[in-house]
Amino acid sequence: MKIKEINVWKADLELTRPYTIAFKTVSAVENVLVELVAENGLTGIGAGNPSKEVVGEALSSTWAALQPENLEWLKGRDLREYQLLCEELAVKFPKNPAARAALDIALHDLFSKYLGVPLVSFLGQQLKELPTSITIGIKNVAETVEEAEEYVGRGFTHLKVKTGETVEQDLERLVKLREVFGQKVTIRIDANQGYTATDLETFCARSANLNIELIEQPLKAANIDDLRALPAAVKDLVAADESLLSPYDAFKLASAPRACGIFNIKLMKCGGVYAARQIATVANLSDIDLMWGCNDESIVSISAALHAAFSCANTKYIDLDGSLDLARDVVSGGFTIENGIMRPNGKIGLGVERLAELV
C-alpha cells in the first residue's frame, strides 16, 4: 500500500491557563499537522510542536522542513516499509525533531490503521493504565495551593510543580502543599535546569521528609558530569529531560557511572515514536526507569506518546497533561482520562478523530 498524498497545515491552539516555568511564560501552542493519505483512502495524522529553547527548532523551521519539495521522497513509498521510512526521517531532517515527530506519528497512525489495531497493540502493549501528573507552573504559595486544590478536586492525585527560582521559595511552596494535602497527593518537581549541584543537594537534604517522587532536570543540560558526581540516592530521583534529546544522549547518560535514575522521553525532543522506543531500549538495558513527558501539545502527539509509553515495561511515570488545558484542538478522542488515570481508547491507530471545522 503506497502513500498517495501528504497534507501539511498549521494550528495555533490557545491555552485556557497560561503558565510560567524557569525561562518563559506560555499562553498558546503552535503546531504543525501532517496527514498522510494512502492509495486506499486510509489516513494517518501527526503533529509537531517544537521547543526552540530545548532543541533549537522554531515553528518556522518545522514548517520550512515540511514543505512539499522536502516530502516528495515519501510520496509513492510503500507503507509496509514503515520502519525503513522512520529511519530515513532522521537522515532527511537531522535538525528538525518536531518535523520528524509529525511525520513519524502520522506513519505510525497510518500503519496501525492498515493493520486494523490500536498503535499500542502493534507496538506490544505492556501497561493498561497509569496516573498522569498535572503541572503547576511557578507561582506564589497561595496561587500554588489554589491551583492544586482545583486539580485535586478534579480527581488528580499526582502533581508536578515547576520550581527552579530559589531553593527557599521552592521549599516553601512544597511544604505548604504537604500541610494542605498530606500524603493524598504524589508530588514531583521540575526545576527546568534552575539548580546548581549544591542547590540540588541542599534541596534533597531539606525536602527529605516531603516524599518528593522525582526531580526533573535540576541542572543545566550540559552538566552531565555534575550529575554523575552526585550521591546515588540523589541521582536515583533525577529524571533527565533537556539532557536527553536522542538515543545517543541515552547512551551517554546511562554509561557508568550513570547520571540519573529516570529518562524523561518526549517525542518532540527525539523525533517521534521510533526514536523514543530506541531510547526506551537503552533505558531497559541500563535499569533506568521511564517517564514520558510532553510540551503543550495536541491530542494527536499526546496519544502517540501514551501508546509508546504503554508498550514499555519500564515505564513508571507519565506526565502527559499537555492537551488538557487547550482551548481547542484539531482532533478528539485518543485516550480516556478519569481521576487523572489515562488509558488508550482502544480504537485503531492513535484512536483520534479529526475535527474538520477546527483545521
Rank of each mutant, 00 (worst) to 15 (best):
S61Y: 11
E14L: 12
W63Y: 12
G271I: 02
H108T: 06
A283C: 04
L214A: 07
I318T: 08
L227H: 06
E81L: 12
L89C: 13
S323Q: 04
A22T: 08
D12K: 12
A327G: 12
N264C: 09
D78H: 09
E35K: 14
I224W: 05
E165H: 06
D199C: 03
N284I: 00
N40A: 00
V117K: 14
E87A: 13
Q183F: 13
A250K: 05
L253T: 03
A11Y: 05
K128Y: 08
V185D: 02
A308C: 10
E39H: 13
T196L: 03
K113I: 09
A232W: 02
I348D: 07
T135A: 11
E39P: 06
D329V: 10
G153H: 13
K75A: 09
T336D: 14
A275N: 14
L177V: 08
K184T: 14
G48M: 06
N264W: 06
N7P: 00
D319T: 09
V330R: 03
T20I: 13
G272H: 01
I138D: 01
L285E: 14
G261P: 03
I279M: 14
E87F: 00
N295Q: 15
E353K: 13
V167F: 02
I279K: 01
G322V: 05
Y274G: 00
C294F: 05
D287M: 11
S323I: 02
